[in-house]
Simulated assay, not measured.
Amino acid sequence: MLNFNGELTQSKETTFLVQNRAFQYGDGVFETLRVLGGKIVFWEDHYFRLMASMRILRMEIPMDFSPEFLEEEILKTIEAQDNPHINFRVKLVVCRKPGGYYLPQNLEVDYFITLTELDHPFYLANNLDYRVELFKDHYITSGLLSSLKSTNKIINILASIYAQENDYQNCLLLNENKMVVEATNANLFWVKGNQIKTPPISEGCLNGIIRKKLIEIIKKLPTYTLKEEKISPFNLQKADELFLTNSIQGIQSISGYRKKQFTHVVADELRGKLNALARLS
């Protein structure tokens, strides 16, 4: 028997959701995917990141969890929609099966797939006002676990609320050493002249797929040098550009941080190359 908002219920669906270990303990990982015309963008990278995350969290990976199987499950979910031929944002969540407390009863997993429609198949420029501020109430812990796309994102949630309450479009998160790690929903890139920096994974930033793809793109361009290097709050205002990356937005330019205003020339150039790479994936 479950008391849900004052109502006693024995609904199997509600009970399953409450017993879900991702809900109870944050014992899960997820991937957020773009699906364009029935094709999952950068699927191989997402799949191998998911498998690596499951191994790190000591989840038992089912024998049938092949790239082909999970891809088919995602596309099957899309085909069941009223209009399966549009573009979708898909969330694939894997969590340990219900049972146990901090110690799970077993290491086997469940998975579920949800989706919402995307407005546009390409990564578009959004160079309107996009201001950020540091979130200093709580800190990301540097290390491997922070680099996973886990279902435990309370600091990101609190920072997002702080941004909304203070009329910012996003917040930048710090680790325990007061180094800038990432934004609430994206990796961070810093540009000065022909030099581009992004925090290393060891600082606690998400091991982002678009971060990885942009690093590959930038390293092939003779006009830029890229370093995975720590970024201090002091160095933010020295940048010509700051931009954010994730799998849904692609590249989001930051227009301002405190009194500093930024350009978006490099971000616009890289966005075109990212779109071209996404079409080929």
Rank of each mutant, 00 (worst) to 15 (best):
F122E: 12
M51R: 12
Q10N: 15
M63T: 14
S253Q: 07
Y162S: 11
H120P: 03
L244R: 04
S160Y: 03
G6Y: 11
V35M: 04
L115H: 10
D82G: 10
R55Q: 15
V181C: 09
N235R: 14
N170V: 00
Y111K: 04
N5W: 10
H85D: 07
H85L: 05
E31A: 06
R271I: 11
I218Q: 04
K227G: 00
K76A: 15
L214P: 00
S253P: 09
E176Q: 14
N177W: 08
E176Y: 06
G26M: 02
V191W: 09
L115Y: 10
K213H: 03
P67M: 10
N187Q: 05
K273R: 15
R55D: 13
N106G: 13
L75E: 05
N235I: 02
I215L: 10
G99L: 03
C171D: 02
I78P: 02
V29M: 03
T223W: 01
T184V: 08
L107Y: 12
E13F: 12
A159N: 02
N83S: 13
S202W: 01
I154Y: 09
K136Q: 13
L274G: 09
H138Q: 15
G100I: 06
T32S: 14
D137R: 10
N83E: 11
F88E: 03
Q169K: 09
Q164A: 13
Y25I: 04
T116R: 09
Y130R: 00
A239T: 07
Y168L: 14
V94P: 03
T141S: 13
A276Q: 12
D129F: 10
E203Q: 14
L280H: 06
F65L: 11
L277Y: 01
S53D: 03
L17D: 05
M179R: 07
F88Q: 06
N126P: 01
L206N: 04
F122M: 11
K259M: 07
G204A: 04
V109L: 07
T245M: 06
